[in-house]
Design a protein around this nucleic acid. Sequence first.
DNA 1: TTGAAAGCGATACCAG
DNA 2: CTGGTATCGCTTTCAA
Lengths: 347, 347
Amino acid sequence: MEALPDTPPKSGQPATIAGVAARAGVGLATVSRVVNGHPNVAGPTRERVLAAILELDYRPSSVARNLSLRRTFVIGVVVPFFTSDSAVERVRGIVAGLEASPYDLALFDVESPDRRRRAFDMFGRGDRADGLLAVSLVPPDAELARLEAAQIPCVLVDAPHPSLPCVVSDDVAGGEVATRYLLDLGHRRIAFVGDKPPDRFRFRSSRDRTEGYLRALARAGLERQPGYVRQGTQSRHVARSIAEELLRLPEPPTAIFAASDTQALGVLEAARDLGIRVPDELSVVGFDDIEAASYVGLTTVRQPLFESGRRGAELLLQALAGEPFAVRTETLPLELVVRRSTGPRKR
Amino acid sequence: MEALPDTPPKSGQPATIAGVAARAGVGLATVSRVVNGHPNVAGPTRERVLAAILELDYRPSSVARNLSLRRTFVIGVVVPFFTSDSAVERVRGIVAGLEASPYDLALFDVESPDRRRRAFDMFGRGDRADGLLAVSLVPPDAELARLEAAQIPCVLVDAPHPSLPCVVSDDVAGGEVATRYLLDLGHRRIAFVGDKPPDRFRFRSSRDRTEGYLRALARAGLERQPGYVRQGTQSRHVARSIAEELLRLPEPPTAIFAASDTQALGVLEAARDLGIRVPDELSVVGFDDIEAASYVGLTTVRQPLFESGRRGAELLLQALAGEPFAVRTETLPLELVVRRSTGPRKR
DNA sequence: TTGAAAGCGATACCAG
DNA sequence: CTGGTATCGCTTTCAA
């Protein structure tokens, strides 16, 4: 194979299809055919065009191409990216899922409702991306209507929606499993540390986990103890101070279930600060199974974060390939991973 | 302010500038002027156009706009994204730096030389992005030449280059500081756990930190001990097994300096597995100060990861704004953060 | 202040 | 097989 020149032959503006055509002494259309691998081009002609392309270091303008084709070959990913480690892991999965495809990825970080609006606004035109992947947030119907009008397929990861394909895990069940495990260990005073209530479009998962927690308690015939359900942000530090309050209660919990591993780390930290031994005096369960969890020996509910992203990408790719768009919710399995942060109630 | 309709009025294709013009009974150019806020449009005319825009739920096609303007308003970020936590943190900084700008961000993940080539290839055309930010890797000259020809400004974060603006930290100095600290604590048998040698384009930092380590030893008049400098991948697990070997040596080190916090965590884990107490029997120093470091009490060399990204974005934005492109290397400060993983040599 | 028309750089249909 | 040419949707002279 011929090596590309180390440096573009001419400076100045990049070569266009017209330049190549002129150079090769053929028409525009022929160059286009060669570039796109169409069959109907005579051998020698093709050779000449190829040579011209090489000499001019020509590469097609993707913008022009997009305008003409009405496709962009990019997939937009809208995600509250910097809020949590789990989002990063999901994006990793998405990248992996897109790896072998011709699609590139445009990341759009969404931290506020305003940013979210902007995101769907820009993708809603249909000329920014061919498809959309929304992570951990559900687009408002007004924005969905626009996507639909623009014929942009959209799949949700870690968020539910009745009329879109979704990849989720059963957070309610996860919360219940974690809590029941604690109950089985003999714990009765079990507290919960989660996120603030969702602001209409995201972080529904924490709420669902709370529900699972409450359900498990109810099934065990336990009353919900006032003051045992606390809410803060995703940050470790906030979770830590919440946990400190909890542990200083006249009747402190003997176990704490946190809605995420990040928050569980904050709980562990609080325990350490207060000289409370884990798991002897306090059991802690997290959620997600992020990297740090295995390191510190945190018992947690593992969620296939990476896989959720990969699968979401896969579904979108199928839709883009024209396969029937199955509007259904796929629920990925959860798994309780028992490590060193939990043990039987001792007092 | 008039509320946007909840749902686009007509289904079918999105409105174009021609549609708006027709609807408002004006020429294309006038609509364009209104959209772009040009001054020379009569009040009533503007009103009519605005009304038409609202009714049709018109929004300009960015592709067409790009083609015409020859700008994309996107900034490409090329980064070995999923290799390390530190890369994520840098990207966070970049996003923050771009927040207030009109630029969007296209992320391109690069894990292999091949992917890297593809990345620079696609951005090299100049129609994908207006500017480029490369993190932790230095683009080969052939690719740089193309960027230059296409007039795409490029700034490097965490990578050095003589002819590009760069934001780096002094890894050699950092390695030296860490090692000297260990020496000052009385340690003499100090091992190093780092990355494999860089593959010509990235991960230079680990090598530089090694150099700092060796320099500190040399300045202290210590011989480099064979078998004390080990290399693996960025992963915690690999670092752990390397550390285990080290600690099983007939003459094991009393301190280990790891080229990253992730690797340092692996070292701590190895110590724990072998029942070696930290810091009493083994001191450990990392590099980066990632989130988990403070959690586990790891002594480390803090690097302003977030800030490096933010600053890189700032420099690029300046270049894009036409300000003189200062080709110089900015070195961000490092800081030794002492926590619980280090202590005086006891034996 | 406004409109007509010429690009921007491809694709693809339609003749030849 | 191959070459014109219309088209994609917008910006921007250039005249009116």
